[in-house]
Amino acid sequence: MSNKPTPRVRVPATAKKDEVIEIKTLISHEMESGQRKSADGQTIARKIINTFTASFNGKTFFEAKWHPAISANPYQSFFYKASESGEFTFAWKDDDGSTYESKAKLSVG
């Protein structure tokens, strides 16, 4: 399972001012816990996404730190209070240093 993790985000495209919207995210990732052993008894090295951040117009408003106890293909939902139109950036940071990103536009009217 070494496919590149693919993020999926569900966020409304429009919102009223001061409306609290729910954002749901999912990313394909095996979240190898570092606790499992392979058939020959070797511990399989840990490789998880350790941090998820959600920002709007460059300002981070939600962050999740994940431990190995988070399930594979991690799901995360959270909320955002809409104030102005702009763009969300969602970023997942992997143990190996890579970052996976997804963007979504929101128009507030």
Partner: peptide
């Protein structure tokens, strides 16, 4: 009762609107 005690930590801001979060964990 897991190999490690931590599961997750969430950081909120006033822009979050609501201090709520859902995820899925291994037990």
């Amino acid at each position: 009762g897991n190999p490690l005690p931590g599961i997750a930590s969430f950081t909120f801001t006033p822009e979050s609107g609501k201090a709520a979060a859902s995820t899925r964990m291994r037990l």
